[in-house]
Design a protein around this nucleic acid. Sequence first.
DNA 1: TGAAATGTTGGGGCG
DNA 2: ACGCCCCAACATTTC
Length: 490
Amino acid sequence: MAKASDGPALFWFRDDLRLSDNPALAAAYAKGRPVTLLYVLEDGRDGTRPPGSAQRWWLHNSLTSLSTDIEKRGGRLILRKGRATQIVPEVAAATGATTVFWNRRYGLPAGVDEKIAASLKRKKIAVETHKASLLFEPDEIRNKGGTSFQVYSAFWRAALAHGDPRPPLAAPKSLTPAAAIEGEAIETLDLLPTAPNWATGIGDVWQPGEAGAREILESFIDDRLARYARGRDEPAADGSSMLSPHLRFGEVSPFQILNAVSGRGADAAKFLGELGWREFAYHVLAQFPAMATENLKPAFDAFRWEEPFADDLWAWRRGRTGYPIVDAGMRQLWQTGWMHNRVRMIVASFLTKHLLIEWQLGEEWFWGTLVDADPANNPFNWQWVAGSGMDAQPYFRIFNPTLQGEKFDPKGAYVRRWVPEIAALPDRFIHTPWKASPIELKAAGIDLGKTYPEPMVDHAAARARALQAFQEMKDAAKICSDALSRETSA
DNA sequence: TGAAATGTTGGGGCG
DNA sequence: ACGCCCCAACATTTC
């Protein structure tokens, strides 16, 4: 029986749309008190980043699933739309909550949650927060000098040595609701696309929600984990975990994944390294809150990106570049809300190096179209590819889309699936349609330049241009630092 | 979690 | 038989 001092509680869902292994939720129910379950669609208010279109679709379905799961356990999910800084204190007061619980989130403008906590405490309402979405708090892993790691491998080594993360928690058995208050119907959140409904392809692939996440984790362990190290690099191999959007919305926790996967050999360790990469992205975001828009390496501020032609950007976005592996990836993204990791690197390299279009434009497109985009990983990985990022690949590392295709999609199965208009080409031309003779093109039913585009840039020329642009950036940085040292020594 | 240019080596064709 | 050259195949370095 709850003590009087425990009173009703309020639990605020954010990036943790699950009942199992949800520490703040478990804590809210630990003393048997009634709890109001709240989700607030902030939608860009209070400086949060509004979810992209694909994420909105996911969110709609994930909230629907969560709501059903909650009702099965006797509870009710209250949906609201607006400023959390107003709504959370308002709902806490309306339901007589004596404590508000939430799991910590990361990458927001400084102080949003702190402001809400302060406002609640002024009303004598306690606030209790937990760690749930990351294995390690951004400031939990420090190097010997007590500062943040700047290099992934060192970070992850230290994290693994830091001690085993806690085992996952069970879901609360019953979700006794506190005083009934009115929420909004999910339709009024306006999360689904209006006509045309572009989301049908996404719905064919994904099942948002905690049950869908659990199924994916199980199928990953049963079918894909043992060949992960190789399979993850071959876009036609279905070797990816496919957990990313579920993890993004917290339908599964990194603790649950770690617990299920660890100790299963080299492929499992390789996969956990990807979980570590995600942790590192948040670790870096905590140091650089402006990471989504500003270069992590200030030297890149001097980089001269090309003024993007609308046609070029369109060709990249819609998969009409003339390089089959790039086009396949961009179409997979457009149609399913997801792109294979290897191909993400290739298309990002193509935008930033072959087209010399600033990474921010690519990051925004991914933000709008990916179901798994999160505020740390999306900009972090874009900067990594562009060369402006933390522990980034060297600027001179420019993917050759033809070689990448031939190496990782040797039979062209991935390309044929997403670029059907060239599917009839023989294997030896599937990544280089422009090298096929007119007779071979005709036999494959291709009118190059009409049914499928010529390459929008020549690889060798684009590579040379990118290397020159990077050299100019280095020269500019040198002039700058020379001037600075003259100034300081004078 | 590259690619291209350059360097080295060794087998084999050939005068 | 011998040396020369060609050129894969592989290694190293450079961008």
